[in-house]
Simulated assay, not measured.
Amino acid sequence: MAGIKSTMDLVMERAARMGVATPDEMRHEENLKKGMHCTAEFLNGTQPSLLALLEEQEPAQRAAIRKGMLASLLRNLFLPRDDDGTGRLGKAVQGIVELNRDSADISALCRELQTIASQYGQHRTQLYEQLKEQMRMQIEQMLMRKGMKADGMKIDPTMEPQFKDQWARLEMDLDRQYGQALEQFKAQLQEWTGA
């Protein structure tokens, strides 16, 4: 926990840096923020192309704005748990590929990353359904031992505390496995893109 800085610590460090920052450093910081803002608009669907946004900027500012865009895109690479997350990941990958359109290696790495994210989603759904069926069968067996019939009863094993506990453990293990692969992809992309 000691390695995690609070928001106030970060604000204070930034304020200290701003007090000694040169005008060039301050402009660079503003351009990074501008790139991040452009990326937010792109990810939210209000801007169709990051490259077009970048090309609208002054040539002297483009490198810093691009770096801000890439940093923001890399932060949006995560293991998606729903369709919205999958869409956002897809947009982030699209932005990275667009900003590095001359690099076949980056395009290939992004395709691999999307494959891993897709496999994660499939694996997650499969594990969830397997656990759900396993718990449903256990509940039915318990009812039969008590002399009750499960026929016609609507059994929702996901409401059981035992299901929630087991699912939390399975999901944590799955996230750790796929998360390690994702972090490796992100590190490689960061290195190759210069973000």
Rank of each mutant, 00 (worst) to 15 (best):
K67R: 13
F78K: 08
L109S: 05
H28R: 05
L77S: 02
S49M: 11
A168R: 15
L182E: 10
K91H: 04
S118V: 09
N31L: 03
Q184C: 03
M12V: 13
G95R: 05
M142A: 14
L170K: 08
A15T: 14
Q119D: 12
G121V: 00
D105W: 08
I116H: 04
D83Y: 11
Q141Y: 06
A168L: 11
D84E: 14
A64C: 04
L73A: 10
G85F: 00
R75L: 14
K91G: 03
Q138S: 15
F78E: 11
F163P: 01
S72T: 08
G95S: 12
K5L: 13
Q122R: 12
D105S: 15
R145V: 01
H123F: 06
M135E: 05
P59F: 10
C38W: 01
P161K: 12
A40P: 00
H28M: 03
N100G: 00
P48V: 13
G152C: 07
F163D: 04
N76C: 07
P157N: 03
P23K: 12
V97F: 04
Q162W: 00
A104Q: 12
A2S: 09
Q180V: 08
E58C: 03
W167E: 10
L54I: 14
K154R: 14
R101V: 06
M148Y: 10
T115W: 05
I139E: 03
M36G: 15
M144G: 02
R124W: 01
T22M: 13
L89T: 00
M142S: 14
S118F: 06
D156W: 02
C38M: 15
Q162E: 10
E56N: 13
E129W: 09
D82S: 02
R145D: 08
C38D: 08
N76S: 09
G19C: 06
I65Y: 02
F185K: 09
Q94C: 12
A195S: 14
D105G: 05
E98T: 12
D84Y: 11
